[in-house]
Computed example of a mutant assay.
Amino acid sequence: MIYRGLTWDHPRGYNALAAAGGALIAWDKHPLEGFESHPIADLCATYDLVVLDHPHVGEAVAADCLVPLEDLFDPAEIAALGRAAIGPSLASYRYAGKHWALPLDAATQVMACRRDVTETPETWDALIALAERMPVALSLAGPHAALSFQSVCGALGAPRAGERFVDRAVGREAYAILVRLIGETTRACAAMNPITMLEAMAAGDGPALCPLIYGYVTYSAAGTIRYADAPHGPAGIGSTLGGTGIAVSRRAEVTDDLRDHLRWLMADATQRGFIPQHDGQPALRSAWTDPAVDAAAGGFYSATRATLEAALLRPRHDRAIAFQTEASLLIRDGLLNENPADAVLDAVEASYTRHHAPGAET
């Protein structure tokens, strides 16, 4: 039997899976944005294995298109993986009392700098001051305006929870911080997704620094980008979890060979060896703390580990992707058009209310 798998079109998302799949799994790939535009149920109707990120979990549960890990592995295995995974990597896939994906890849928003930038601002106040002396850009394209906003709110002390998306006073303060960084550099980069912005920075054509952007180890390993922890606020580091998990669809005929392969992908030796050796970004803490893995990655893991350990989760309820898309558009347009904070926050809260059923998990 050959299983069909779908992952995202980047060396970090594809190379290790393709190299490991052998005669068991044939991996296809499509753009990262493709996961936002295709319902997860449609992908699961075609593929046995789907690499996804945690905001898709509620939609998948509503569509009943994934097999929970509890049906595949013993509770002790899942608990051990939760302890071994860095930050909330496994916890992000827990929804409605079960886990729906293995944390294959760990990432969060961190600070990225060109290699010629020697200053590393640790706080938002220091970052704003630095932006007066060098080109600093926010990552605002696609869902990233909403994700950056959520991260600043977390640094200020109000992670998202309950029936509201954000506390209004904290939301105003976070919006004001982002407004201070809407200069020529951010406007020039407003349509760049993280990969495009990092490519521009690596080539010397982009901003000197981006305070919140999803970290890609490949640029650090190549020596073109230097990473650091995301800026602190009064509540500590604010960052919103990314990364991907590998999920099993209902169409898959699960065999012991498949279970063993999934176990191998998450094994300590694989995560510290095979995954980083094939352009992957591992999800186990043991890999992130391995000196050899860190050295080969240009210090990426030690420079950003604290941010990942403290990362916030995104909304995961059914229709969370629709909310994320709409909220990001509202925040991005509000910032670029200099709209007042309350008008933008009113619209974001209205969108959250439309897309999040009362009493549903967040």
Rank of each mutant, 00 (worst) to 15 (best):
Leu312Lys: 01
Ala84Asp: 12
Ser286Pro: 00
Leu17His: 04
Gly233Arg: 09
Pro68Asp: 09
Leu308Lys: 01
Arg272Gln: 15
Pro135Ala: 06
Ala222Met: 02
Leu329Arg: 14
Leu258Tyr: 06
Trp100Cys: 00
Val110His: 10
Leu32Phe: 15
Ile275Trp: 07
Met197Cys: 11
Ile177Glu: 01
Val117His: 07
Arg180Cys: 00
Ala155Gln: 01
Lys29Ala: 15
Ser286Ile: 06
Thr7Glu: 11
Val50Thr: 11
Leu308Ile: 12
Arg160His: 10
Ala343Asp: 15
Leu262Ile: 05
Ala80Asp: 14
Ala155His: 02
Leu198His: 04
Trp27Asp: 10
Leu32Met: 13
Tyr93Gln: 08
Ile331Val: 13
Glu132Tyr: 01
Leu265Thr: 08
Ala45Ile: 00
Val179Trp: 03
Gly5Arg: 04
Thr307Pro: 03
Gly334Ser: 09
Asp260His: 12
Ala84Gly: 14
Asp279Met: 14
Trp264Gln: 12
Val152Ala: 02
Ala283Gln: 10
Asp333Phe: 00
His30Ser: 06
Leu43Trp: 03
Ala287Met: 08
Pro143Thr: 13
Glu349Thr: 06
Ala200Lys: 07
Gly236Asn: 11
Leu308Cys: 01
Trp124Met: 12
Arg250Leu: 03
Ala200His: 03
Pro276Tyr: 13
His54Ile: 02
Tyr93Gly: 08
Gly82Lys: 11
Val248Lys: 12
Glu309Pro: 05
Gln109Cys: 06
Arg259Lys: 15
Asp256Arg: 03
Ser249His: 09
Asn337Tyr: 05
Pro276Asn: 09
